[in-house]
């Protein structure tokens, strides 16, 4: 019996869940529990009440509509990873998902739960930022859509209000003609990233990149796009010197303090290398797609 005392509710509707959250600011939402329960076992988290949303109908499933992959709140990592429809719409999701912990964790952990947990080194929050996605939150005053850049505020901190339930995440489909790639560096497979980088690249007719998105996680207090890196690459042919220069610029994004795995200068070198490799791979895939 590791967790501290808490109350438990298993609502049957979204409205009921929101009412429970609104009545108790110390309440937390329980979906898969793969981040929350370990935090409770270590007593890093001591919610006054758990609102277990597993019995609420309509919160499951994946659909692709309106240019977005819509992932409902109870969808597990593994379901999204194995979804052929989601993979065809944006292959970077499956590529990143292979790095999310291990299959037994992905079997139970939910995508939306990971987004709401918002670990600064977690892969799925970064993919949401990379793709320019959003989450949909329902609260007592209604529903609002929050863009990824506004949603992730800090390590384990989002702009979700305590009385809101995030009912779905929306990952945009890969733009036509674009290529995407994801890679990360860890000591052991399945660990949180020491640094991870994702990229989406589209090439113009002249072979120069006319659209570049680059995002990273594990190196700062939240997942983030790297606008200076993107600006350096747009309009270039992504030659070796362009990629190397972009990697150097990416070093500025590293703010994570030294930890047991890496020093700041080590992380900078890792992120610079990953930017080079991942942008190159995304560009190669964009080229193949033409």
């Amino acid at each position: 019996m590791k967790p501290a005392l808490f109350e438990y509710s298993a609502p049957q509707t979204v409205a009921e869940a929101i009412a429970l959250l609104a009545a108790d600011p110390g309440a937390m939402v329980l979906a898969g529990g793969q981040s929350l329960v370990p935090a409770m076992n270590l007593r890093l988290a001591s919610p006054s009440r758990l609102v277990d949303i597993q019995h609420i109908p309509g919160l499951s499933g994946i659909s692709v509509a309106g240019g977005e992959i819509i992932v409902r709140a109870l969808t597990t990592h593994r379901e999204l990873e194995l979804s052929g429809e989601a993979h065809r719409a944006n292959p970077v999701i499956r590529e990143a998902m292979a790095h999310v912990a291990h299959i037994p964790i992905r079997n139970r952990g939910t995508v939306v739960g990971s987004l709401c947990h918002a670990d600064a080194a977690a892969e799925m929050p970064m993919v949401l930022v990379l793709t320019g996605g959003s989450v949909v939150a329902e609260g007592p005053q209604g529903t609002r859509t929050i863009g990824a850049e506004d949603f992730f505020q800090f390590h384990m901190t989002t702009s979700r209000e305590s009385h809101e339930l995030v009912v779905e995440a929306r990952f945009p489909v890969l733009p036509a003609g674009a290529g995407a790639a994801f890679d990360e560096f860890t000591r052991r497979h399945g660990d949180y990233a020491i640094a991870a980088v994702g990229a989406i690249v589209r090439l113009g007719r002249d072979g120069a990149a006319d659209k570049v998105a680059v995002a990273t996680c594990g190196v700062g207090s939240r997942p983030m796009r790297l606008p200076a890196v993107e600006a350096r690459l747009i309009g270039t042919r992504l030659a070796a010197e362009d990629l190397a220069a972009a990697g150097e610029i990416a070093k500025d994004a590293v703010t994570a303090p030294d930890d047991i795995n890496a020093t700041t200068s080590y992380r900078q070198r890792v992120v610079a290398t990953l930017v080079r490799r991942v942008v190159e791979k995304a560009a190669h895939r964009a080229g193949q797609g033409r």
């Binding site: 529990g33 329960v37 277990d52 037994p104």
Partner: peptide
Amino acid sequence: IDGKAGRSCLTLAVQ
């Protein structure tokens, strides 16, 4: 759990 491998230490009995 329902045929899929999962951590019993990360699952509450009530869940």
